[in-house]
């Protein structure tokens, strides 16, 4: 259940950014979350509501873009979706480590007023 500490980090980041812009409220926060980031989206939403209470983001909407895990084959260079987190190339069958995306835990934008 580290979703709570991630949402606390999000709150601190978002408030800092919004206040630097002189915002009086945050309407929307958009996150990119990788499918191998090790978090549960529902748990993120639950924690989000709890940690934003009593801030200028209390009524903010949380938008989450899920980033699918994509690997690059160490053998033939093909890019492919890493199903179940395994980088097994569908072309040549090689198993490699290079994950191009899928671990993201990023705040990408804030809608403020």
């Amino acid at each position: 259940m580290h979703e709570l500490s991630l949402m606390e980090a999000l709150r601190d980041l978002a408030l800092q950014q919004a206040e630097a812009e002189g915002a009086v409220r945050i309407a929307v926060m958009t996150l990119r979350v990788g499918s191998l980031a090790g978090v549960e989206i529902e748990a993120l939403r639950f924690a989000f509501a709890a940690v934003m209470a009593d801030t200028i983001a209390a009524a903010a909407v949380l938008r989450i873009e899920v980033v699918p895990a994509v690997c690059r084959c160490g053998g033939c260079g093909r890019r492919f979706a890493a199903l179940d987190g395994v980088c097994e190339c569908p072309s040549c069958g090689a198993i490699s480590r290079e994950l191009l995306q899928g671990r993201e835990l990023q705040l990408t934008s804030l809608e403020i007023a």
Binding site: L10, G22, A23, A27, L105, Q106, L107, T108, S109, I112
Partner: peptide, 12 residues
């Protein structure tokens, strides 16, 4: 203030 969007892209 007018609503506006900030692009931030920061890791949590």
């Amino acid at each position: 203030p007018l609503p506006r969007t900030l692009a931030v892209t920061t890791s949590l």
